[in-house]
């Protein structure tokens, strides 16, 4: 293992994050506050409680997931797409590093940034609502796993993307709708029965449900199933990354 290279890539990526620290910090704070104003005040006044939890608190896990997933994907996809776009990828390809070291560097940095933003949102949310986290370690584990697995997905998207439009395509057309329809702002028990069944095909449901369980001890689907879902998802991403490594797809001509 070339640990020096992993460290170099990780630090280089984090340096980009710190260059825009104010931006990285302020935007999640503002967007979270806006969600609380819109969902908390406008809708929350009509929905008192969801299964014994105040609506304001109920949406916190979903809000965190929404930002963390989006950030993990966009950071990782941009991180690897940018060197491809400006040509600096030549340096990675001609250095004594293997693809997994490159993945660890980029995905690790993207996951760290997403985790940071998740924590900032959690902090902001606690200013608006009373929050007690029932299973803090499970919450943290879920958060970290989500950061890593979606950063992996983002990395794959960044390798695949041939232009900036494609880079935005998957997050915009697939990921964001899945998160919004994945019970971020509602419990799936509030849906008509047919939609409850359809929703179960949305993988994000399992993540948000599991994450919410860590907060409040309540879940739309059993916690074991949530864990299985994230494990399968991470495994799939790793398999694709391994395949890219084997074939040099879209990296090495």
């Amino acid at each position: 293992m070339n640990f020096g290279a992993i460290k170099a890539i990780y630090r280089n990526e984090m340096a980009r994050f710190f260059r825009t620290l104010a931006q990285s910090f302020i935007s999640p704070v503002i967007s979270t506050s806006l969600y609380f104003v819109v969902f908390g005040a406008a809708i929350g006044s009509r929905i008192d409680e969801v299964e014994g939890v105040s609506y304001g608190a109920f949406i916190v896990p979903g809000l965190i997931m929404l930002s963390v997933i989006t950030q993990a994907i966009s950071n990782a996809s941009f991180g690897i797409y940018f060197p491809k776009f400006i040509g600096t990828i030549y340096e990675l390809l001609s250095a004594p590093v293997n693809f997994f070291e490159i993945v660890i560097g980029y995905v690790g940095a993207a996951a760290t940034k997403a985790l940071f933003i998740g924590v900032v949102i959690l902090g902001t949310a606690s200013l608006f609502v009373d929050l007690t986290i029932m299973h803090p370690f499970a919450m943290l584990a879920f958060l970290v796993l989500t950061c890593i697995s979606f950063a992996l997905l983002g990395f794959i998207i960044g390798i695949w993307a041939g232009n900036f439009e494609q880079l935005q395509l998957v997050p915009l057309l697939i990921i964001t709708p899945l998160i919004f329809l994945g019970g971020s702002f509602y419990s799936i028990s509030m849906l008509p029965p047919v939609w409850q069944t359809i929703t179960l095909f949305n993988p994000v449901v399992y993540l948000i449900s599991g994450f919410r369980w860590a907060f409040f001890g309540m879940a739309d689907v059993p916690i074991g199933l949530s864990l299985l879902a994230i494990a399968v998802f991470t495994g799939l991403c790793l398999a694709v990354v391994w395949w890219i490594f084997k074939t040099g797809w879209r990296i090495r001509t």
Partner: peptide, 24 residues
């Protein structure tokens, strides 16, 4: 390389140090 492939926002010293780091 033939093309000038450099990350525009990086500082000179840090981009050179990064290259050394990549070689472990």
């Amino acid at each position: 390389p033939q093309e000038i492939n450099l990350e525009p926002f990086e500082k000179v010293a840090s981009t050179v140090a990064f290259s050394r780091g990549l070689f472990g």
